[in-house]
Write a protein that binds this DNA or RNA. Structure first.
Length: 288
DNA sequence: ACCCAGGGTCGTC
DNA sequence: GACGACCCTGGG
């Protein structure tokens, strides 16, 4: 493999901070010069903004350009998506302006499953640390500009870890869940490649729910961030909070149940609920 | 020192 | 369908 450069001239909807810090991914880190470096399935990439250009520099299988186009969802037009959402109401107009550079990344299915199992009742700095540690322990080395990085481990590689060893990586009570799910995937109780062929989002979700540590919220994050189902609406504490604040006004937030929010999201955002959720989430988190 | 919350899920009732 | 427990870490 060799290091390559790829430049995007005047891309629409592309802000590094918006993309990498809206909670969808855990392996991108800002550098001193303002660029971001991340490890994805295909390799390691540095992304930098230079004027109105985006400069990618990376070490990727099957070439950098292909990896970038796929991962950053460049065939999708987010200006159009934002226009549609902004028409809905003033909140969507504001949040799509605030997070105008967001794109939904097309992340690896296996990595997304494990990452969001780890996310349960956890905070982002710690999630990132845990994923980094299991990559260092069980992933493969990959080099960029003379520095060593580590890919996310394959199911085979991660299956070498015992529950105790996973615990030592900082997973806490999620150790068993990752352990069991790894085995289920490895033994093809759930075949990830076949999963990608299922069209019906509902059926797909039901398959994901069979995995240990995957409930409704985690399943919907997997559907949105790895399987590109823009109609699903993952509900976490922040989304519950912001939806209640904007649309429901219930003083006791505990009373705002999931069913109510899902109906509201579907009715308001229709087949773009997932993207709407991401603008709202980023907006709420950055402004509170 | 103490308490609380964090991109929830699971087992139990 | 509700309810509490759950590893661990950073911040008040």
């Amino acid at each position: 493999m060799e290091e390559q450069e790829y430049i995007l001239e005047k891309p629409e909807s592309f802000e590094l901070k918006h993309i990498f810090e809206c909670g969808q991914c855990f392996r991108w880190n800002e550098q001193q010069d303002g660029s971001y470096i991340g490890v994805i399935k295909q390799g390691v990439i540095q992304v930098q903004k230079q004027g109105d250009k985006i400069v990618f520099y990376g070490n990727c299988r099957n070439g950098l350009k292909n990896a970038v186009n796929d991962y950053f969802d460049l065939d999708n037009n987010y200006d159009k998506i934002k226009q549609k959402l902004a028409k809905i109401d003033v909140f969507m107009r504001n949040s799509t302006t605030f997070g105008a550079g967001i794109r939904i990344l097309h992340q690896d299915l296996w990595e997304t499953i494990i990452s969001f199992i780890i996310s349960a009742n956890n905070n982002i700095p710690r999630i990132k640390k845990i994923i980094e540690r299991i990559s260092q322990e069980y992933g493969e080395k990959i080099e960029l500009k003379g520095k060593i990085y580590h890919t996310f481990p394959t199911p085979e590689a991660l299956s070498k870890a015992t529950i105790a060893e996973l615990r030592a990586c900082g997973l806490g009570f999620r150790d068993k869940r990752v352990f069991h799910t790894t085995r289920m995937v490895l033994e093809k109780e759930i075949d990830l490649e076949q999963l990608k062929c299922i069209n019906d989002s509902e059926k797909l979700r039901n398959e994901l729910l069979k995995l240990d540590g995957v409930g409704r919220k985690v399943a919907d994050c997997i559907l949105l961030f790895a399987l590109k189902r823009f109609d699903v609406f993952p509900i976490d504490v922040w989304v519950r909070r912001v939806m209640n604040e904007l649309y429901i006004h219930e003083s006791n937030e505990e009373k705002v149940n999931q069913k109510m929010l899902l109906e509201l999201a579907n009715q308001k955002f229709f087949n773009l609920a997932g993207v709407a959720q991401q603008y709202l989430y980023y907006w709420k988190r950055e402004t509170s």
